[in-house]
Write a protein that binds this DNA or RNA. Structure first.
Length: 287
DNA sequence: CCTCATTCCTGCGGGC
DNA sequence: TGCCCGCAGGAATGAG
C-alpha cells in the first residue's frame, strides 16, 4: 500500500528523527527482512554499527539513509513495512524485524513488517544513489524528471496505460491506488493501449499523476488501517479524498454512476463506467 | 530486448 | 463457532 506519498511521509519523518545520529547497535530479528543484503545479518549489522546517518532520501517507493561511510541503508516498505521511531522502553511490536539503537541512548528506529514484502539492505558506496535502485526511474516529484522523456517512453511501449503507470522503470512511485486515481481524473480507462494515446493526452495524465501525488503528500498519505503509518505511528488523511479506489458501487463524484471494480494483474482496478469507458478494442496482452 | 505471469507473505473478513 | 479461501499488492524473477 505505501506508494510515493506514504514513503515521502516516512522519509520526511526519518530526516527529522535520525539525521545526525550514530548507530550503536543493530538487531536483526527476522532474516527475511534483510534478504536483499546478500552478505547476511552479521555483515549488515557490522557495516552499520558506529556509522552516522547523514540524511534521508527517496526515489519512487525506495528510500535510503546516506551514511558517513559513503554507504547507504536502503529500504523498501513493500506492502506492510513500517519504519517507526520508538522510545527505548516501548514494547516490541508483533512484527518487529530490525531494531536500531543509537549512541545518544534516545529513541530507537524499528523496521516492522507484517507481510515481509519489504526489506532493508546496505548499499556499498550508495550514499548518492544506491546501485541497487539505479534501474528505477526518477519519480514525477523529482525536479529532474523529464516529462517529455516519459511521454516518449510511454509512446514507444506496446502495452496498456495502467501497466505503463505501474512500471517503475518508466515512472516510479505510482502504485495501484494513485494509478486509478490519476486515470479517473484524466477520464481514461486503464486498459487503453498506449499506442492510441496522443502526446498531449499522456502529458495531461502525467499532470494528474503529479497533482494527486502532491495532494496526498500534503495530507500525510493514504491510510486504510493501522498498517500504513508515519514514523510516529500516525495515519494520513488522503483516503477520504479518493475518488475511485476502494469505492466499488458508490457513486462517481463527477457523474453519479456507480464505480466498477475489474480484475487487473491479479488485483483490482476501480473506474467510472461512464467517465472512463473501456476501449472498444482492448489490447490483447502479448504472449 | 520486450512484455507478462508468477511468486513471495500474513491477517482479515466473507461464506458456509 | 470455526474453518477455509480469497484478497490485499510491489517488484524480482523467469518464461516466451
Amino acid at each position: 500500500m505505501p506508494e510515493l506519498p506514504e514513503v515521502e511521509t516516512v522519509r520526511d519523518g526519518l530526516a527529522r528523527w535520525v539525521t545526525g545520529r550514530r548507530i550503536a547497535a543493530v538487531e536483526v530479528r527476522h532474516p527475511r527482512a534483510i534478504r536483499r543484503h546478500l552478505a547476511g545479518p552479521e555483515h549488515f549489522a557490522g557495516v552499520l554499527t558506529g556509522r552516522t546517518i547523514v540524511g534521508a532520501r527517496r526515489r519512487g517507493k525506495y528510500l535510503w539513509l546516506p551514511l558517513d561511510s559513503g554507504d547507504a541503508l536502503v529500504g523498501h516498505l513493500g506492502m506492510s513495512g513500517q519504519l517507526l521511531i520508538q522510545p527505548a522502553d516501548a514494547a516490541d511490536e508483533t512484527h518487529l524485524r530490525v531494531r536500531f539503537t543509537f549512541a545518544d541512548g534516545g529513541t530507537q528506529l524499528r523496521f516492522v513488517d507484517q507481510r515481509t514484502f519489504g526489506g532493508l539492505s546496505v548499499s556499498a558506496g550508495g550514499a548518492t544513489l544506491p546501485a541497487e535502485i539505479a534501474h528505477i526511474a526518477r519519480d514525477p516529484m523529482d525536479p529532474e524528471f523529464s516529462d517529455a522523456g516519459f511521454v516518449a517512453a510511454v509512446r514507444r511501449r506496446r502495452t496498456q496505460i495502467k501497466r505503463a503507470l505501474l512500471d517503475q522503470t518508466l515512472i516510479s512511485g505510482v502504485g495501484n491506488i494513485y494509478a486509478d486515481e490519476a486515470l479517473w481524473r484524466a477520464r481514461l480507462h486503464g486498459t487503453r493501449p498506449t499506442e492510441t494515446l496522443t502526446g498531449p493526452t499522456i502529458t495531461r495524465l502525467l499532470g494528474h499523476v503529479r497533482d494527486v501525488l502532491g495532494e496526498a503528500i500534503a495530507q500525510g498519505g493514504t491510510s486504510f488501517d493501522a498498517l500504513y503509518v508515519n514514523v510516529n505511528g500516525e495515519s494520513g488523511y488522503f483516503a477520504r479524498d479518493l475518488n475511485v479506489y476502494g469505492r466499488e458501487g458508490l457513486p462517481c463524484r463527477r457523474c453519479g454512476t456507480p464505480i466498477r471494480r475489474e480484475a487487473f494483474m491479479n488485483r483490482s482496478s476501480y473506474s467510472c463506467p461512464r467517465c472512463q469507458p473501456r476501449p472498444r478494442t482492448v489490447r490483447t496482452p502479448a504472449r
